[in-house]
């Protein structure tokens, strides 16, 4: 009985190598820095990881579908700018938030529709989005940072439930919801089928293009949620907000083990990837690592973790 439990655990870890890796990283920093293993610090890490984390949820969905979205950072910036800018121009807080969410979803819808209608690779279309949407933000803000007028807006992130901030709770709930969405709904499972073998999915009568549009819309919507949470936390809207975050998002998702080529992955893997990135960053800062060294280490971590993945997958394959 004990043996089977061990076996099940090792098998799960083999398929979700990132959690084993995260565990090692946590142990390392626990010994390396006395400040690391405290509830306060860990709660902080979780909150900080939530922004990239929520972007990563949408990215995971799109990637399982076999596509990629490079515009998430720019959509996040739109949502940051709109939620603060609209408030300042006299709309209520919640009206502004709703409009920001709506615009995120619409930009995602636009991405998805262009990909579905033109048949152009999503990498290209969203690369256009990355530049063009960022341009929109500059036009809207005039190139300057907008500062929120009603400071009650910045008090929302201070809501805590035990050690969990509202930001972290929203992030974890979204992970839970989308994990369920992927495993238990028709749309979620069909995303795997499309990413795995698009031709087979089409031949089976799955409406491939509709899936692409829906998943990009969800991805844009999630980017907007992340943007709103960020705007509440910062109280300002920088036109450069979320720059190169799309890269960190992709890194987190791939680190988790979701395949760039589609058809394989899960939200739990992505959660592991997001947390690993956040923990490494936090740990290095606690150890007073210079910023440029931090980047070198992060790059090495990415390659190391993916090496681990390759080692494990080749092992499990041999066992078959």
């Amino acid at each position: 009985m004990k043996q089977t439990l061990v076996k099940i655990t090792t098998e799960w870890l083999m398929r979700n190598h990132i959690w084993a890796f995260l565990f090692l990283v946590v142990i390392f920093f626990t010994f390396a820095s006395p400040y690391f293993l405290s509830i306060n610090n860990l709660s902080n890490v979780l909150t900080q990881s939530a922004f990239i984390g929520i972007l990563a949820i949408g990215m995971t969905l799109v990637m399982i579908n076999g596509e990629i979205d490079l515009s998430v950072g720019a959509i996040l910036a739109v949502s940051v700018a709109l939620s603060i800018g609209l408030q300042n121009s006299g709309l209520g807080i919640w009206t502004s938030v709703m409009l920001a969410l709506f615009s995120g979803a619409m930009l995602g819808f636009l991405n998805g529709s262009l990909i579905a209608l033109s048949g152009i690779n999503s990498f290209i279309i969203t690369l256009g989005g990355l530049i063009g949407i960022r341009g929109l933000v500059f036009v809207y803000t005039g190139g300057d940072a907008l500062i929120v007028k009603d400071f009650s807006y910045t008090e929302y992130p201070e809501i805590y439930l035990g050690p969990f901030s509202i930001t972290a709770i929203i992030f974890l709930s979204l992970i839970a919801f989308f994990q369920w969405f992927l495993t238990s709904t028709k749309h979620g499972r069909e995303a795997y089928a499309i990413g795995d073998n698009a031709e087979a999915a089409y031949d089976a009568g799955i409406l491939v293009k509709r899936h692409v549009v829906i998943n990009f819309t969800i991805c844009g919507f999630l980017a907007a949620i992340s943007g709103i949470l960020l705007s509440m936390r910062l109280g300002t809207a920088e036109p450069q907000a979320g720059r190169i975050w799309e890269l960190w998002t992709i890194i987190a998702v791939v680190l988790g083990g979701t395949r760039l080529t589609g058809g394989y992955g899960s939200m739990l893997k992505t959660l592991g990837g997001v947390l690993t990135l956040a923990v490494v960053q936090n740990g290095l800062r606690l150890m007073n690592t210079p910023n440029y060294v931090e980047l070198i280490v992060m790059g090495a971590v990415l390659i190391l973790a993916l090496g681990l993945d390759r080692l494990f997958t080749s092992k499990t394959r041999e066992n078959v």
């Binding site: 499972r189 073998n197 087979a200 089976a204």
Partner: peptide, 14 residues
């Protein structure tokens, strides 16, 4: 025309 990552049942009724 099958999806290798999905289960047999999911593929039959794809």
């Amino acid at each position: 025309s099958l999806s290798p990552e999905l289960s047999v049942a999911e593929n039959i009724y794809l």
